[in-house]
Simulated scan of single mutants.
Amino acid sequence: MGLIWSLIVGGVIGAIAGAITKKGSSMGIIANVIAGLVGSAIGQSLLGHWGPTVAGMAVIPSIIGAVILVAIVSFFFGRNQ
C-alpha cells in the first residue's frame, strides 16, 4: 500500500509542478508521477525535509524540486505547450 500511496502523491506533486510551469498539458500521467518522485528527491536533497509530509515526502521542497525538474526537462526538449 505504501508504494501505491507514494505513486499517487508523486503524481499529484508532478501535476502541481506542471501547472506551475504551464507544461502540464504536455505531460501525461506517467510523466507526472516520474516528475513528482524525481522532483521530490531533488527538492528534499537541496532543501531538506521541512513543511508538511505526505507519504514520506516533504510537500513544499518536493514541489519546488519538481518545478525545477520540469523546467529543465522542458528547456532541453523544447516543449512549448
Rank of each mutant, 00 (worst) to 15 (best):
V73T: 15
P61Q: 08
A55C: 10
V12P: 00
I29N: 09
G18E: 02
G28E: 07
G51I: 02
Q81C: 11
S62D: 12
I30A: 11
I34N: 02
L47C: 00
I13L: 09
F76H: 06
P61A: 08
M1P: 15
G43T: 04
Q81E: 14
G36Q: 09
I29R: 08
I64L: 11
S6D: 15
V59K: 10
P61Y: 11
A35Q: 10
I20W: 00
G14I: 00
V59D: 06
V12D: 02
V33W: 02
V67Q: 06
G10H: 07
L47Q: 00
K23I: 01
L46T: 11
G51M: 00
G65K: 11
G2D: 12
W5L: 15
G28A: 08
K23L: 01
S25V: 04
G18T: 01
G51C: 04
G14Y: 03
G11N: 07
L7A: 15
I29Q: 04
L3Y: 15
P52N: 09
L69P: 12
A55P: 10
I63D: 04
L7F: 14
A15H: 04
H49C: 04
G14E: 02
G56P: 12
I13V: 14
K23P: 01
F75R: 04
S25R: 11
G56K: 03
Q81Y: 12
G78P: 03
V12W: 05
L69R: 07
I4E: 15
L47V: 02
I72H: 05
K22W: 01
V33H: 01
M57E: 12
F77E: 13
A19Q: 06
I42F: 10
G11V: 03
G10I: 02
L47M: 06
F76T: 08
L46W: 12
G28M: 13
V73L: 15
L7K: 03
M1T: 14
H49S: 09
G11R: 00
F76R: 05
G18M: 00
V70P: 13
G28Q: 07
I29V: 14
I8Y: 12
M1W: 14
V59P: 08
I4H: 12
L37A: 10
S26Q: 09
G2R: 05
S62G: 11
I13A: 05
G14L: 01
